[in-house]
Design a protein around this nucleic acid. Structure first.
Lengths: 197, 197, 197, 197
DNA sequence: TATGAATGAGGATTCATTCAT
DNA sequence: AATGAATGAATCCTCATTCAT
């Protein structure tokens, strides 16, 4: 069993946390190496350049979020209501932001960033697609308010991101179940079509 | 008619848009100078360092947002309902993001950033304070849902930020009044306490 | 009566004192202008460049020293002994270093300096020539020790320079007549051929 | 056999010779790197800034001179006369200026210079102290002329410095033993109290 | 294979010089 | 004629990347 993948993994984690703290541009390769506990030179055995490391970290993080979402959507068996499905999304985001706070913050800061390869950006739309598919389904069933699905996704994910960034020091894990429930309900109401509206 | 005093202003605008596009760390001084239409050396006539420019830009932007909010809260005379007051906030944010898209994006990216002086960070809490005062008032009157006011502010401003970032190329000005209304209602429902809840 | 020569003079004095304090290379044009009480731009009305100013200052200082020496050698009428002639030299150096401390220090620091034009360097050998002529005459009359005249000049002027630099803050004017006499005798003994030697 | 630890040394030597030639302020870091045979970046691996390099070079040079003096004073066994002790000083200075011409010239140019840290200046008074102790001893024994010891030191070291600077291209090593003897005697006579004086 | 010292292109900043007022 | 704001080449310094060990 090789140790190599281990090192690459540590490098990705190190990079992700530093990028979240100080920005991709503001992070130096020696700092990444140090936090990963390896020598600078070793980074280049796993990633050909800083840009490559940045993209790998981005893709690793996005894929992690995507996996977490898929797991949450599948694991408890089929969902019966739109609200229930929203709960699954919420669970996926919550778990991911809980276990990979840095990665989540990093992801939400990147958007149009110069170092992102097309491949990374392609991956970025995946989460949006999954989310807006859900919105569209909810709109068809009348339970989610009308409007551009992408725009609603932006509002909802933006709200969640705001929450996570607000919780910075402790991370979302520090939040009491009650507070988390308040937030979940609030975001659901952001999307939910009210009966008399 | 002297154009000179405008140079500091042009530099702030240039810096703001570049910081929004490429990050503070990812922006080079020559790029700031070029976009401002001046020579590199001129930057240092107005700001002693890149860090000082970053802080000045941040404070200028935050103050602009604060002013816009105050204007919106005051201008139409006294408000009579919490919903109406929320509308004023929405108007303030909307106007600011419309007229200073870059500045708004820049502000929302900075949080814990390394270059921000204490003075800048002090200004940053001001907006939060104004907003959470509103939330608390709404909670007392029963129209805004229970929960940590700061957390609700984070959710609401996060949602708005998500919208603005989603609209990146065109800016919020491109949005139809109808779409804007959908967004406003959605964010209100994020905060609003439902009767039967 | 034009004011111009006045300004050029102030600029030379300002430059000389700054060069003595901080080195030619370490002195900025705005500092020269400020100490002279004029705007930066005005320097260039009198001197085409920093290098030209440096050379003008050097030549002005060297010429001042030369004039002082000539005056001292001539003014009291003809000299009758080598020791008496040495006294005249001492008087010239002393007066110059007393009235133009900065200029003297500046002169002794320049030697091989990059900014000195050939013309300036030509002027620099003039003092040496006057001094070594004196040494040679003294050697012929048996009152000054044997050895390379240039080398003896270097020793004697070096000693005087050491004294002046040592006296930096107050300048040589601060020295009591007695102390000055000690120094004069010491330097004379440096040159003087002892009877039994 | 590693050459690495030598890099700091090569940098000090390179810096010293350039500072002597062109002044601290007039010397560029790339020039220091080039003469030391390393890349610019390497300088900063050994010295945090140009100022630090300047101070390190100064201290290295002063310490070298001090060591040379101590060696010369000790090595030949105890001295029996003041003249003999002077000979030891002369030997120390001569050896140092011979083996480290650039360093000696550099030292004598720095005095009150802007980049010198207090620590460097503290070291600078050390040589003066050693020298004036000698002068005082000589005065007590009646062999050195009366007067402020510091002032006599300034005259004597100034004379030696004048000699060394005069010899610039070849250095003091080029001087014939006879010429060197002339100089030594001359400087001794500068200090020596004449019987009938 | 892993390392970190060495490198030099690139970024922040300074400063001699120009030129509109 | 005098000024000092504006400029950009030149300077100090950083940091992604290489390579000898």
């Amino acid at each position: 069993m090789p140790r190599k993948p281990d090192i690459a993994q540590q490098l990705l984690d190190s990079a992700l946390s530093l990028f979240a703290e100080r920005t991709y541009e503001g992070t130096q390769m020696p700092a990444v190496a140090q936090r990963a506990g390896v020598g600078v030179g070793s980074i280049y055995r796993y990633f050909p350049s800083k840009e490559a490391l940045g993209n790998a970290a981005f893709q690793y993080a996005k894929r992690g979020l995507l996996d977490q979402l898929n797991d949450a959507l599948v694991e408890g068996g089929p969902v019966h209501t739109v609200r229930e499905e929203f709960g699954r999304f919420w669970l996926g985001f919550t778990r991911y932001a809980g276990s990979a706070h840095d990665a989540f913050v990093f992801l939400e800061h990147q958007q149009h960033d110069t170092f992102l390869a097309p491949e990374s950006q392609a991956l970025a739309v995946e989460v949006d697609r999954v989310a807006s598919d859900f919105i569209e389904r909810g709109q068809r069933s009348g339970e989610i308010r009308d409007g551009d699905p992408q725009q609603l996704v932006a509002l909802a994910i933006g709200a969640f991101t705001g929450l996570v960034k607000h919780l910075r020091p402790g991370g979302i894990g520090k939040l009491s179940p009650a507070s988390l429930k308040v937030a979940e309900d609030a975001v659901w109401d952001l999307l939910h079509r009210k009966a008399d509206s």
